[in-house]
C-alpha cells in the first residue's frame, strides 16, 4: 500500500467522504424508522422521500450565526468539534469495506481502533469543558461515567473476537470469517453485548444521559451553535457509521457474501453497506422503544446485565479454542 492509496483511503473511501455521506444516510434511516414507530411520517420533502433532509439540516446549521458564550476556552471550543468528526472518519479508514484493499492495512489496526474510541470520547469531553456551565459540567460528568461503564464491555467483546481468531488486524478477522463463517455464529452473546454497548457509545436512548434534554438541556453540547453544532451532529452520525461498521466487520463477516469479489469489489461494498444499515436500523429500533435509564442505575444495568453475558461468551471462546 503506497502513500497515495492511504491518503485516498483516509479522505475518500472508506474514510472521510464515504463516512460523511453514509452518516447523512444513517440519520435519514433513523429518522424515518423512528417516525414510523411513533406513527409519524418523518422527513418527506427534501429529495426523493426526504433523503436529503439531513444534508439540508447540516448546511443550514453551517450558515447559522454562532454564539460562543463568554469565558469560553477558544482553542478547545473550535478544535473539539473537528476532532470529534475526525476520529470516526479516520477510524473508518481502517475498516475493510471492500475486497479491493483501499483501506489502510496494518498488522495492528484492530487494536488501534480501541485507542481511537477513547480519543473520540476525549474530543466530546473537551467540547463540553471548553465552556463551563452547569449543564455542560453535568453532561461531561455523565459522559465520563457512561464511557467508563460501556467501554469495559465494548473492549472485552472486541478482545474476545481477537481471542478466538488470533487476529490483531481487520485483515486477519475477515480471513478467519471467510474460512469459518461469521463470528456471530460463535459469539452471539458477545454480539448482543457489543450492540448494547454501541447504544451507549452513540448516546442513544436508553443511554442518552449525557445530553438528556429534559434534564440538562443539551448536556455537553448545550453552548454550541452554528458550525460547531453542525460538526458535533455530523460527528455523531459518523460515529454511528463507524460503530456499525465495526460490528459488521467483527461479527457479521464484513464484506463477505455471495458473489464476493465480483464487479471489482462493488458487490462486497454493497454487502457491507447493507449489513451496516441493518445493524444501525436495529440499534435505532431498540432505541425508539426505550425510555432513558437513570444515572444511578446505569452501572448496575449495563454491568449487571452484560458482564455475565461477556463472561459466558469468554468460557465458550476458550472451550472453542481448546476443542478446535
Amino acid at each position: 500500500m503506497d502513500g497515495a492509496t492511504a491518503v485516498f483511503a483516509a479522505l475518500v473511501f472508506p474514510g472521510l467522504l464515504f463516512t460523511f455521506l453514509m452518516g447523512l444516510f444513517f440519520e435519514y434511516v433513523e429518522r424515518k424508522l423512528v417516525a414510523r414507530v411513533q406513527r409519524r411520517i418523518g422527513p418527506l420533502y427534501a429529495g426523493p422521500g426526504g433523503v436529503l433532509q439531513p444534508l439540508y439540516d447540516f448546511v443550514k446549521l453551517l450558515v447559522k450565526e454562532e454564539l460562543p458564550p463568554e469565558g469560553v476556552d477558544r482553542l478547545y471550543y473550535w478544535l473539539a468539534p473537528l476532532l470529534a468528526a475526525a476520529a470516526p472518519a479516520y477510524g473508518m479508514a481502517f475498516i475493510p469495506v471492500s475486497s479491493f484493499r483501499l483501506s489502510i492495512d496494518t498488522p495492528y489496526d484492530y487494536v488501534f481502533t480501541l485507542f481511537l474510541f477513547s480519543f473520540a470520547v476525549f474530543a466530546t469531553a473537551a467540547a463540553g469543558y471548553a465552556v463551563y456551565s452547569p449543564y455542560t459540567a453535568m453532561g461531561v460528568g455523565r459522559l465520563v461515567v457512561q464511557y467508563s461503564v460501556y467501554e469495559a464491555i465494548f473492549a472485552s467483546t472486541l478482545a474476545l473476537a481477537s481471542l478466538q481468531t488470533g487476529a490483531t488486524s481487520f485483515r486477519g478477522l475477515i480471513e478467519y470469517q471467510a474460512l469459518h463463517g461469521p463470528l456471530a455464529l460463535y459469539q452471539p452473546l458477545g454480539l448482543a453485548a457489543a450492540v448494547v454497548a454501541l447504544l451507549a457509545k452513540l448516546e442513544k436512548t436508553p443511554f442518552d444521559l449525557p445530553h438528556a434534554k429534559q434534564e440538562i438541556v443539551a448536556g455537553w453540547m448545550t453552548e454550541y451553535s452554528g458550525r460547531g453544532l453542525a460538526f458535533l451532529h455530523i460527528a455523531k452520525d459518523m460515529s454511528a457509521v463507524w460503530g456499525s461498521a465495526l460490528i459488521v466487520a467483527v461479527y457479521l463477516g464484513g464484506p463477505l457474501g455471495p458473489l464476493y469479489g465480483a464487479l471489482g469489489g462493488l458487490v462486497d461494498a454493497a454487502w457491507f453497506v447493507a449489513k451496516m444499515v441493518a445493524v444501525y436500523a436495529a440499534v435505532a429500533f431498540i432505541s425508539s422503544l426505550a425510555g432513558r435509564v437513570r444515572v444511578r442505575g446505569l452501572a448496575e444495568k449495563i454491568w449487571g446485565a452484560l458482564l455475565p453475558l461477556v463472561f459466558v461468551q469468554f468460557l465458550v471462546v476458550v472451550a472453542l479454542r481448546w476443542l478446535v
Binding site: V34, V37, Q38, R39, R40, T205, P206, D208, A212, Q214, S288, L289, A290, G291, R292
Partner: peptide, 12 residues
C-alpha cells in the same frame, strides 16, 4: 413519557 426520555410513548 417525554419527561422520562421515552419519546415514543409521548407520540403514541
Amino acid at each position: 413519557g417525554y419527561w422520562m426520555g421515552f419519546e415514543t410513548m409521548f407520540m403514541w
